[in-house]
């Protein structure tokens, strides 16, 4: 029995590794869509052939693609992300602190949103079709429909302009104290949480309602077991797999969703760097940021599946 689970887990992990590899290949190849190549694009039309050739050699573009890919990914794994085309700085330098900031922001949002969403989802499922459930559902549907920047600006409007409680910009000084970091992160975290809570809550509610309709729950009710025992002993263990999955998927979303929020609040994170670099067409930086974002996303998605497999009671006790 444990063997079959192990096999599933190993398969899923292998698939995760394979997608990581595929993702890195795609990110590497995307540059190939450029008319001409990166050297031509950087130097512009006016450059002479010799300059372009020299620049190409400097970037290592005269090597065959396979060699370049191996070198790029090899360097990447050793922490050498290359050099920015815009300002010739080491990309790892640019990325370093920002990655920490972005992960902090996403982690804080997760800490706020996961417990809240699970609680609301369970309550909505328990009291389904009551006014509480309807109100929650309608507001969740609206929150999902709002663009993130809309939510962000409404929060700014209320809490920073009208009430003056929090700053509207979250530019952190490197030596900022913890209190300062916290104060400046409240609004970005709130924005991210609102968007994610709505989704997680809806999915938790749906998973639980499906379950509460199943015959064995009705049987438990008919036996006269208390409501709390039905939820915690009978429903929750079976709802765990979908809920864990929902949480991990939303965490993956969080890591990417920070991009817009960071731009609104001028938060010095990886998303901001990515957007700036796309505007400047600083392709090595875009590649590095994309790979970091995509890798985090793949890892979290893989984690979601692994946890779903591991927490599925049916796999623990397979028939036959």
């Amino acid at each position: 029995m444990v063997k079959s689970i192990l096999l599933l887990l190993v398969q899923r992990l292998a698939l995760g590794l394979l997608s990581l590899f595929a993702v890195s290949v795609i990110i590497f190849l995307a540059v190939g869509l450029l008319p001409g190549d990166i050297a031509q694009a950087m130097l512009g039309q006016a450059a002479t052939d010799e300059t372009v050739a020299a620049f190409r050699a400097q970037l290592g573009l005269d090597q065959p693609p396979l060699m370049r890919f191996m070198q790029w990914i090899g360097n990447f794994l050793q922490g050498d992300l290359g050099v920015s085309l815009a300002n010739q700085r080491e990309i790892s330098e640019l990325v370093g602190a920002r990655l920490g900031n972005t992960l902090t922001l996403a982690a804080m949002a997760a800490l706020v949103s996961v417990p809240l969403a699970l609680l609301l989802g369970m309550l909505a499922a328990l009291y389904r079709n009551s006014w509480f459930d309807r109100a929650l559902n309608t507001s969740a549907l609206s929150a999902v429909s709002f663009p993130e920047f809309f939510v962000a600006y409404i929060l700014i409007m209320i809490f920073s302009v009208k009430l003056g409680w929090f700053p509207s910009i979250s530019n952190l000084a490197p030596d900022a104290s913890f209190a300062e970091v916290f104060e400046r992160s409240v609004l970005p975290v709130a924005t991210l949480s609102l968007v994610v809570i709505a989704q997680m809550m809806r999915m938790t509610r749906a998973a639980l309602i499906n379950l509460l309709a199943s015959p064995y729950i009705e049987m438990a009710r008919l036996k006269g077991i208390s409501q709390a025992r039905i939820i915690f002993r009978h429903a929750l263990p079976n709802a765990l797999a979908p809920i864990v999955n929902v949480v991990a998927l939303n965490l993956a979303y969080l890591v990417v969703g920070v991009v817009v929020v960071e731009v609104v609040f001028v938060y010095p994170g990886l998303g901001q760097l990515l957007v700036d670099s796309v505007a400047k067409r600083d392709i090595p930086v875009v590649q590095a940021c994309s790979l970091i974002f995509a890798a985090t996303y793949v890892v979290l998605n893989t984690l979601a599946d692994v946890l779903a497999i591991a927490s599925n009671p049916r796999l623990m006790h397979p028939k036959g």
Partner: peptide, 21 residues
Amino acid sequence: VDILMAIPQLIFALLILSVVG
């Protein structure tokens, strides 16, 4: 499709748009 979906959409779009304009 599995491979394409492994990359977050926003990141993929930003990557390609930075290349093709």
